[in-house]
Simulated scan of single mutants.
Amino acid sequence: MRKRTAGILAAAAAIALCAGASWAQETIKIGNIVATAGVLKSAAEPTVVAVDIAVDEINAAGGINGKPIELIRYDTGSDPKQAAVAARTLAQDDKVLAIVGPFSSGEASVALNDAERLKVLMMPTSSSAPGLTDGKRYGWRLSEDEFKQFGRLLAAMKKAGIKMDTAEIVYISEEVVSNAAGTKLYPALLEQAGIKHGDPIPVQYKSFDLSAQVAKILQSNPDIVAVAALPGSASKLIAELDRQDYQGRVIGSQIFSDPNVVELFGPAGDGTLMMAGFWKGRTPESQAFNEKFVELANERGIPKAGAHHSDAQAYDTVYLIKQLMEAAGTTGDPDKLQEEREALADGMKGIRFSGILADDICFDGNDAELAGYVIEIKDGEWTKFDEAPADKCD
């Protein structure tokens, strides 16, 4: 589904009239691939709010190079094939200068190929599967990969003296990142840390009864259960683990690290450890974004207890593109479309960026180097257990 954001168009028209120029030639077109339906809805839909906040702030401050952003959206409905259609539609029909999104690694794995072929900058908002941007010129990510973040979690647990000699792994078979984490990343990192584990246990996204899988887990009674799943599926597993009186820790990487899990998991979630790429208390600006995001999301009927790191990444991605366009002198002139697209891709090489995620962010290859925050649900609260600084860029 294609949609222009009405409030942004109104701002665009107003600024264009003040400039005494044609509205259609006086905007900066940016595409936004989103997922507000399907399996990704609960995790992906809030990024729409984060992008809207960034665009509204930029337009209120005068836009980019004196021109307002015209945001053009395409909704994939969580279908990777539609992400490819979105990339082609936004690049060829709408002639956007750059694309924010898509959301997931599954969507990005196909859409990035179209962005490369069509030579338009694409920055996914949440995809964290390792290697997605390798060898790309037009595909970049303001996110940290699952392999590194899960390794940081295990290191923090070891430092804290948490018992983790044995583990079991559970993953969602149909979801790209969950599957990759559960079958490849988690086993490799657990083995590297000297933690014994059984064969990864697959669970289908739509599974309601997880009693058999949990009974299998309890046969070995592991110290930790490593879960690779979105929040809804993770909550079902945690509830069943609690029902069957599991006494160990549940851990996970970035996949289910949404502040909403505090309420979703309930008392059974206490002690759960996970990784996040955003901490709301890092700076006053980070805190202000979190508060604005929660207020607007709830106004739109999207219940949020706090911003997920994917929301913060989406917000900062818009500002990063703004920085790129200002440095490149982007005009939005249709006759210079490919020239200006090329300049944006070139501008990503060696760029440094500061935002609500971190200060002075650099890129190793095409992926940002970000800090990792170890989050613990403690006494029903989203708390910071530990943190790891961002790696240095080569």
Rank of each mutant, 00 (worst) to 15 (best):
N65D: 11
Q192Y: 10
Q338E: 15
I217C: 10
P389W: 03
E168R: 03
T183Y: 00
A115P: 07
D379E: 15
G161N: 11
E299C: 06
I356D: 03
F353V: 11
W279H: 02
V51N: 08
A43D: 12
A108E: 04
E295M: 12
D145W: 01
F353H: 11
A43S: 15
R4K: 13
F103Y: 15
A86G: 14
D270M: 03
A13T: 13
L118F: 10
A91H: 04
R141S: 08
V225L: 01
P187W: 00
T317Q: 04
V374S: 12
G271T: 04
P200I: 09
P231F: 10
D242E: 05
Q82K: 14
Q287F: 02
A188K: 11
D258H: 02
C393F: 09
L218K: 13
L118P: 05
K81T: 11
P130D: 10
A19D: 14
R341T: 08
D209S: 09
Y205R: 14
A12I: 02
D75E: 05
L71I: 07
G106P: 07
A10F: 04
K336W: 04
A328R: 04
E168W: 00
R152K: 13
P284E: 11
E191L: 10
L320N: 05
Q247F: 01
A108N: 02
V49A: 05
A83D: 07
I321N: 11
A84G: 13
D114L: 09
G332Q: 08
S220T: 15
A229W: 05
A156D: 07
V96A: 06
A6G: 01
K206W: 03
G182I: 06
R4G: 12
L230I: 14
A91W: 02
F293H: 01
V120N: 04
F289T: 07
A83M: 04
I33K: 08
Y319E: 12
T36V: 13
S109M: 09
N298F: 08
K292T: 14
D360N: 15
G252I: 01
V34L: 12
S128C: 07
F208C: 00
L121S: 11
G198F: 10
